[in-house]
């Protein structure tokens, strides 16, 4: 199985404190990889290292190497904007941009010079793959904030898909949704692996079991265990992993 992202010796310092310690892991292509662990363990930070959104937090320092298709994304000649186009991200809370539904999805492609018919197609295609097209096709001109919160999250997914990324990062995408819309978004995530490499941060173990092919367990900034979902959940090797997947509060 080909690894699309390789993380090697990755450490992250935040104002002098180590938030991630010497992480090394391969993220396989066109599979869903879940990052689990107790809150504050560095899940989201690791995710943000993968598309350099971590750069936006002042006081952070990254050491080590992350390669995407063999190229180091922290290399000096890398265009961060282009990297973020290739590695899309969907956040915890849905954040519709202050414009119409259509314009939200068209925002990304427009940046890259797509317009006219091609733009229309891109918007429709993205909304379809996010499972939102049927619900919004007659109200594309409406402000995006009028959508329900679950719809908003799928809109953010569509917006991320519209720039044609290769990798999609999800940061607890269902944690602010009600159970029904959460299930809806989750199904969408599971379907996306046909075309994309997916990394999902979640604190919901059942969700990880349901959607992920691979699981990484992070604790106190260290990668404790890493393997297929069955391995990690059925026969965890490490004491802490055993405690965590058994549901003990650690």
């Amino acid at each position: 199985m080909k690894a699309q992202i390789e993380v090697r010796n990755l450490s992250l310092a935040y104002r002098g404190n180590l938030a991630l310690k010497d992480i090394g892991v391969d993220i396989p292509e066109k599979q869903v990889t879940a990052i689990i662990g107790p809150s504050g363990c560095g899940k989201s930070s690791l995710l943000r290292c993968l598309n350099r959104m971590i750069d936006l937090i002042p006081g952070t320092k990254v050491r080590g190497k992350v390669t995407l298709d063999g190229e180091d994304i922290y290399g000096s000649r890398v265009d961060v904007m282009d990297l973020r186009k290739r590695v899309g991200m969907i956040c915890q809370k849905p954040v519709p941009l202050p414009m119409s539904i259509y314009e939200n999805v068209a925002f990304g492609p427009r940046l890259y010079g797509v317009h006219g018919k091609a733009l229309k197609h891109a918007v429709e295609r993205s909304l379809r793959s996010a499972g939102l097209w049927e619900e919004v096709k007659d109200r594309l001109k409406e402000p995006a904030i009028r959508l329900s919160i679950g719809q908003q999250q799928r809109l953010c997914l569509a917006r991320g898909l519209a720039v044609e990324p290769e990798v999609l990062l999800f940061d607890e995408p269902t944690s602010s949704l009600d159970p029904v819309s959460a299930r809806h978004v989750e199904q969408q995530v599971a379907e996306l692996k046909r075309d994309y490499t997916v990394v999902i941060v979640t604190h919901d173990l059942h969700q990880a079991k349901r959607v992920a092919d691979h699981v990484m367990f992070l604790y106190l900034g260290e990668l404790i265990e890493n393997g297929t979902t069955t391995q990690v959940f059925e026969s965890p090797q490490d004491y802490w992993t055993r405690m965590y997947v058994a549901g003990a509060g650690i």
Binding site: L68, E71, R77, V78, D79, M81, D82, R86, L111
Partner: peptide, 10 residues
């Protein structure tokens, strides 16, 4: 990914 977005960056 090398500097394809030159114009936007400028």
């Amino acid at each position: 990914m090398y500097m394809t977005a030159g114009k936007r960056r400028i």
